Simulated assay, not measured.
Amino acid sequence: MKKTFSIISIFTLLISSSLTINSCGSSADTVNCFPSSPINVSINLNQPAYYNLNQVGGWVYLDLAQSGTRGLIVVRSSDTTFKAYDRNAPHICPDANTTLEVKDNLSIICPKDDAKWILLTGQPTAVSGVPPKTYLYNYNPSTKDLNIYY
C-alpha cells in the first residue's frame, strides 16, 4: 500500500510539473510560451527605408529574415543608442491579436489587452509589468551600419 501511494504521488507530481512547464505562466522577462527564434539582422541607416532611425525618437518596423516570428520595432532612443523590441507581446501567449504596434510615435501597445509601453525606454505604463523583449545591437556611426542580434 505504501509503495502504491508513493508511485501515485510521484506520478501526480510529474504530471502537474509538466503541465506547469508547458502552460503560459510568467517568467522574469517574458511568458514561458514566448517564441524563441534567431535574431540576426543588419541594416544600413543610409537606406531610405531606415531614414527615420537617423533621428532620436525615430522608429521602424523590421520584418526581415531572422528578425523573429513577428518582426522587430527598432527605435533610436538617443544620439548613440537604439532599442530593438520583439513584436510579440512579452506578457501573454501569442495569438492573432498580440503583435505589438507603435501608437502616436510615443508608445507601444498590445491590441489584445491595451498593455502599453514607452517607445523610447520600453518602460511598462499599463496592464503589463513586463517590458518588451529587447535584443542586443552593434552600431557603427561612421558607416551607419546597425546589427541586431540575440
Score class of each variant (00 low, 15 high):
K2E: 10
K2Q: 10
T4V: 01
F5Q: 06
F5A: 10
S6T: 07
S6D: 05
S6H: 11
I10H: 05
I10E: 05
I10A: 13
F11S: 14
F11Y: 09
F11C: 14
F11R: 01
T12L: 12
L13Q: 03
L13E: 01
L13W: 06
L14M: 07
I15K: 00
S16I: 04
S18V: 06
T20R: 05
I21C: 11
N22L: 12
N22R: 04
S23T: 05
C24Y: 08
C24M: 03
G25P: 04
G25E: 14
S26P: 03
S26I: 06
S26G: 10
S26V: 05
S27W: 01
S27C: 01
S27V: 03
T30W: 12
C33G: 02
P35I: 03
S36H: 11
S37W: 07
P38Q: 11
I39Q: 11
I39D: 14
N40A: 13
N40P: 06
N40F: 13
V41S: 12
I43M: 05
N44A: 05
N46S: 12
N46W: 03
P48H: 04
A49V: 02
Y50K: 07
L53Y: 08
N54H: 10
Q55I: 09
W59R: 07
W59Y: 14
W59S: 10
L62M: 10
L64S: 11
L64V: 08
S67F: 08
S67D: 11
G68N: 04
G71R: 08
G71N: 01
V74Q: 00
R76Q: 01
S77Q: 04
S77P: 00
T80G: 00
T80I: 07
T81C: 00
T81P: 00
F82L: 13
A84T: 08
A84G: 15
Y85P: 10
Y85D: 08
Y85F: 15
D86F: 08
R87Y: 08
N88F: 11
N88G: 04
P90V: 02
H91Y: 03
H91G: 08
I92S: 05
I92P: 00
D95Y: 00
A96T: 01
N97Y: 03
L100G: 06
L100I: 07
L100P: 09
K103G: 06
D104E: 14
D104A: 15
S107R: 13
C110V: 02
C110D: 13
C110R: 01
C110E: 09
P111V: 00
A115I: 09
A115C: 08
K116S: 11
W117Q: 03
I118Y: 10
I118G: 07
T121H: 15
G122A: 15
G122M: 15
Q123V: 15
A126W: 00
A126F: 01
S128A: 13
G129H: 12
P131Q: 14
K133T: 14
K133F: 09
T134P: 01
T134V: 02
T134E: 13
Y135Q: 14
L136E: 12
Y137L: 12
Y137S: 12
Y137P: 13
Y137R: 12
N138H: 13
N140F: 06
N140H: 05
N140Y: 08
N140I: 05
P141K: 00
D145S: 11
D145C: 02
L146Y: 07
I148S: 01
Y149E: 10
